[in-house]
Design a protein around this nucleic acid. Structure first.
Length: 471
RNA sequence: GGUCCCAUCGUCUAGCUUGGCCUAGGACGGAGCCCUCUCAAGGCUCAGACACGGGUUCAAAUCCCGUUGGGACCA
């Protein structure tokens, strides 16, 4: 059994998008499951569109989601001589020929063929010429097979059959000396000994063009697997107008990479009814048998739900780790120096079931920093009225008289005061909530007190009374 | 235009290989109820799909053919 080798081969023409991440993920999962190798290759031969910034963005994106590669990143621009050598070797073996057709002539002939309703492929007129030393501008064309059929036993689509007579002699080396996409891919996949080419199904029709090149070059064929595309809500290919498509944008919006991965893997793959998978489970359970053949619509709502699930169930320490940069960003850098990891974890547990992103979480955590809570005007006006002041005052005295500070004891004290004042739980709870957090919505009151601590709880209640009296 | 791919709730999907257990299951989203100190979370309930038409068969979401509709690639 030879070792499984897969690759992810993005073009560095922008950020790393959702679709690319999913392709990378499926490759990565398969590699890890098979104890194979995951190779990263940057297809940057289109120099007009490729940028270094984009390469950086792609690597950052992959690192963020934790898809680590075993080899590379290799850059195609550093391998151009390799492609030329292979192209020339095909020429020397009579498997490729020089084509001196001018681009404008090709275009004219194509137009004509189109008008007459004929096939628009290259007519092969330079093929019989046998030019050995082209006079000027010339491209090298591959002699594609003209008869027979090319059969792909696809890992996902099963058997796909193409008649070879639809293939034209595609250019492998342009007149400027650069290889074309279909050629450099084959040379790389062959030389890198890729055993399984797992890519988007937009490449499915490229595959019968590539297979004969592998064969002509004398390399063994990899297996192919063509993943369905990801679409936007209007069923068109996912693009910017459907919202954020860069993974890094999701990082910035406060998504956890593990939630992103879990969401993406379920987009096209399933394991019965299971929705939540940790990484090890995914590696163990992943199988091409259960990859969907049809394309899938990206659903931001479900991703948000998935993120909320991870926020609720991940170890608090993990969330704090992911949350810290967001707190810094929000201006809590200084406050962070005065709180313990333990306290932060406690606050995370306090608020997490009402948050869906780390950004949400920052907002929910805000009231627990500092001595004072920032007061929502409307909430203050509504609940901190002069009439509630006596009850709050009584509450403070009650709390102060209690020898222990604990959730259970303070809750008991609170209920007693409410009863004595003839107030329903809710009538006293809302004013207290506003006094403690500045807001009308918060976690359970006594959990809040626990996180604030005895002194700050009393202090904020006192301030609440002042507000109530002066309103 | 040519070639190829695809087709189960609005969306992601289970089921399809090996027809019957499917009056089609789960999840997101939606509606409602319960819980409740607010907001959530959670629990329960409801609405919601086998694209269409032919076959094959005692029996089809499942097999075959066609149609329609989406999509990709080629330039």
């Amino acid at each position: 059994m030879t070792q499984v080798r897969v690759r992810f081969a993005p073009s560095p023409t922008g950020f790393l998008h959702i679709g690319g991440v999913r392709t990378a993920l499926f490759n990565w999962l398969f590699a890890r499951q098979q104890q194979g190798r995951f190779v990263l290759r940057i297809e940057d031969t289109d120099q007009t569109r490729s940028t270094d910034a984009s390469i950086t963005a792609i690597l950052d994106g992959l690192r963020w989601v934790g898809l680590d590669w075993d080899e590379g990143p290799f850059r195609q621009t550093e391998r151009v001589t390799l492609y030329r050598q292979h192209a020339m070797s095909l020429f020397e073996q009579g498997k490729a020929y020089w084509c001196v057709c001018k681009p404008e002539d090709l275009e004219a002939r194509r137009k004509e063929a189109e008008a007459k309703g004929f096939s628009q492929r290259y007519d092969g007129r330079c093929r019989p010429l046998g030019i050995s030393d082209p006079p000027g501008e010339a491209a090298l064309r591959f002699k594609a097979p003209q008869e027979g059929r090319t059969i792909i036993d696809d890992l996902i689509k099963d058997r796909v059959v193409f008649d070879n007579n639809v293939l034209d002699d595609l250019i492998i080396l342009r007149s400027n000396g650069y290889p074309t996409y279909n050629f450099s891919v084959v040379v790389d996949d062959a030389l890198m000994a890729i055993t399984h080419v797992i890519r988007g199904d937009d490449h499915l029709t490229n595959t019968p063009r590539q297979i004969p090149i592998f064969q002509a070059l004398g390399y063994p064929l990899p297996r192919f697997g063509h993943l369905p595309m990801i679409l936007g809500s209007d069923k068109a290919r996912l693009s910017k107008r459907h919202g954020a498509t860069s993974v890094i944008a999701y990082k910035e919006m406060g998504y956890l990479p593990e939630a992103m991965m879990n969401y993406l893997v379920r987009l096209g793959w399933s394991h019965g009814d299971q929705e939540i998978f940790d990484r090890q489970e995914l590696i163990a359970k992943f199988s091409f048998d259960h990859v969907q053949k049809s394309s899938a619509v990206f659903n931001p709502d479900k991703l948000l739900w998935m993120n909320a699930q991870y926020l609720q169930h991940s170890p608090p320490a993990r969330i704090v780790e992911q949350l810290r940069p967001f707190l810094e960003e929000a201006g809590f850098g200084d406050s962070l120096r005065f709180v313990t990891q333990e306290w932060l974890e406690q606050v995370v547990v306090l608020v997490r079931e009402r948050t869906k992103t780390l950004l949400d979480m920052v907002n929910w955590i805000t009231p627990y920093f500092g001595d004072e809570a920032s007061m929502d005007e409307e909430a203050t006006k509504k609940f901190l009225t002069p009439s509630i002041a006596p009850a709050l005052d009584r509450l403070i005295h009650r709390f102060e008289s209690l020898s222990v500070f604990s959730k259970a004891v303070w809750e008991e004290g609170f209920k007693k005061v409410a009863e004595d004042e003839g107030l329903k739980m809710g009538q006293l709870a809302q004013p207290v909530r506003v006094a403690l957090t500045g807001r009308t919505a918060s976690p359970g009151l006594f959990e809040v007190m626990e996180v604030l601590g005895r002194e700050r709880t009393l202090h904020r209640l006192q301030r609440g009374i002042e507000r109530a009296k002066s309103s």
